[in-house]
Design a protein around this nucleic acid. Sequence first.
DNA 1: AAATGTTTTAAACAGCTGTTTGGTTCTTGT
DNA 2: ACAAGAACCAAACAGCTGTTTAAAACATTT
Lengths: 232, 232
Amino acid sequence: MDARTRLLNAAGPIFALHGFTRATVREICAAADVNIASVGYYFGDKLGLYRGVIAQIRMEREAAFPVPEQVESDPRRELYRLVRTLLSRMLSSDVKTGNDRWEMDLLLREMQSPTPVLAELVRDYFEPMLDRLKSVIGALLDQDASTIEVEQLALSTVGQCLYYRVSGSVLGILIPAQRRQEHYDIESLSQHVTAVMLATTDQTGLRKYKSELVDMNLTVLGSNAKPSINEN
Amino acid sequence: MDARTRLLNAAGPIFALHGFTRATVREICAAADVNIASVGYYFGDKLGLYRGVIAQIRMEREAAFPVPEQVESDPRRELYRLVRTLLSRMLSSDVKTGNDRWEMDLLLREMQSPTPVLAELVRDYFEPMLDRLKSVIGALLDQDASTIEVEQLALSTVGQCLYYRVSGSVLGILIPAQRRQEHYDIESLSQHVTAVMLATTDQTGLRKYKSELVDMNLTVLGSNAKPSINEN
DNA sequence: AAATGTTTTAAACAGCTGTTTGGTTCTTGT
DNA sequence: ACAAGAACCAAACAGCTGTTTAAAACATTT
């Protein structure tokens, strides 16, 4: 195999495991069975190699879990498909090998310590998915739903999905292994998240509770006579 | 001020900004106006200093945004308070100074690259909040709600809140600054998240949509005759 | 077979890292 | 005032970092 691609393949998991800085080119080159100077030769420097890895896994994951085509007649079913794709991208990795899920770890590190790469990643990878979610949620809501309302709901959807990836380490401590395996797989979570969003976008749902909430809040504020201060 | 506490204060933002490894003791000591050898003198080594910082910010944030006492008669209002506390802990920092929100960044880094510190952090900081959420959501649902259902809903709540912190960098690219300031403050988001969860926990809500979903899903699978394969 | 261009190699470089040393200054109790 | 201990300091240490060098090995073309 080409030394360049061997380097690319070896770098991915190591960058994901240790982050960009902590990952050393020596460790990567040893894993790729390649001389240390090769990263300079093929990618200019360490950051160039990193860019290459990011670009590669983005293509891979778009191919493995593409945004479903817009053929669903029922927006509810389309929402389910989108959520499932989202969760698959978050939690799953190569379907064939069943390998570790290092790709998403890498993207999360990029979100936490952004490099110039993040902007294009958002533009090409996250935004299309968010737009699709907005369009489906818009279809589920009444026509006079505000842009911001639809957007917040789309973000709530992504947020729930992302959470199960971000706090994997925390969930590992909070939730016993058996229950985790039984109830926190992609299928169960897809159904759960979709159900939450369907219940929320029901005509009688969100707006009713939001106005209820405003009333409640005003009552609290009124009885306390402190209109703008944090009450926690 | 004591050199020890000066060190502790200076280390927090720097650890949060660069992560444990990238943060150098030289930079921290320079910011604290302290000799390099002091970290060894007071904390043993760099990791000891890190532990000290984590312990300190946990105490600070618990004092600044305590879990509300269980005095609310209306579970809906209690849910709102819990969500607001959660979002405050995520998004806000020192109320007086209005400083940067570096504390949560640090906790997130700990979640992503866990050290032995994470376990106690989960036990003392996350778990009590999650238990409270479970109890409120259990009160909102009908009595025969399963444990796992309540837990998933509680995690969905936390997930939505956490998302606005985790993907701060992404939101900065996706959403224009003005709209972000107007609609993505703590108050707006608290109302939004609470409304979503109230709509979902309505008696007629979640379970209805979940069974609907199962029907839909079975239909899809049946027409494709591929029962167990990922259809994305 | 010779020449040209490409790829690979071991070694060295300069710089930064956390930690330690041994001595100095300051504080405290008697 | 003086001794004992705590606090602090500049300097050096050993190790690892990304990157570069210049030569060797290989491949391809003439």
